[in-house]
Amino acid sequence: MGVRLLVGTAKGGFWATSGDRRTWEVAGPFFKGWRVTTALRMKDGRVMAAVASDIYGPALQVTEDFERWEQLPAGPAYPEGGDRRFREIWTLKEKAGVLYAGVQDAGLFSSADGGASWRAVEGLNEHSTRGGWVPGAGGLCCHALLFGDDPGRMWCGISAVGVFRTDDGGKTWTPRNEGVPCAIEDKEHKGIGTCVHGLAQDPDDPNRLFRQDHLGMFRSADGGDRWERNEQGLPSGFGFPIEIDRATKTLFAIPQESDQHRLPAGGALRVFRSTDGGDSWRSASQGLPSRDFFGTVLRGAMAVDGLDPGGLYFGTSAGTLHASSDLGESWTNLPVALPRVLHVSAWTE
């Protein structure tokens, strides 16, 4: 079975395709000059890509054939006259026929008609703690969204604010950050000020969550009610992406030296994986640049393909692209030098 990667960069999107997950063809760019910030393969087979420009703002584009794109007539939007700006889309998800978009300035929007129209998830966007939401280095962005078995349960992650959970389909949301150190304390609004960078979820137990946070690596066995630190074997608790292989539940993370330096430790590009639910982590970096490498991996720039054995793919801020078809046992460095990689999606075909 082949794999298609959508690689979103700071200056356009690229396709990387492979029939054997060893040799790759790269094509693009599409949306030349636009940031491609995230993407979704919808249940109906179409691909939705979020694009953004510092000049012209964000939009959603859709393709049925990976070639011809059409901008959706409408997208998430904040009301005219308000102080919020819709700057870009950080995550796109689909559940039970409803599309969700997590955006910057932080907010969540949903569409029940395939993206033709969008409405704000007011319970989150107008949350009582909103006055204490302040942007992190990457902006005030809602970048992660997970779903529970219970159709009413969802989690979202907002950078520099924390994780929120709803149990009533989005009407009400509660911060779920107990056990995670506060990064930016707010005098008035409690329960926020943690800085979630990435979320992953046990495919068989949606309440078992894994969290790459600004201040460490954490996990929760109870849907985020309580978090515990799990960093044994990691060179640093700081990093951005976290992914999980569906079949083996292997976790993957790419730590950085520290939040101050934000570089690969020692100039080595290293992936760390855990095969025991986060109890311990080990490097799985055979074939990756082991010296003189100073690119980093952003939160949306790593993806798994769900095949057996599981494939793992990521791009870096240095424009490099890396692929493993064996759960990180070995790596292929694709012979490309792309713009800064913001996002990687992996789909089988």
Partner: peptide, 19 residues
């Protein structure tokens, strides 16, 4: 061409800052 609206105008109702 209604798709142009969010690219030319922003939430202020005026032209985007760099347009």
């Amino acid at each position: 061409e209604p798709r142009l609206r969010p690219h030319l105008f922003d939430e202020t109702g005026g032209l985007r800052e760099h347009v």
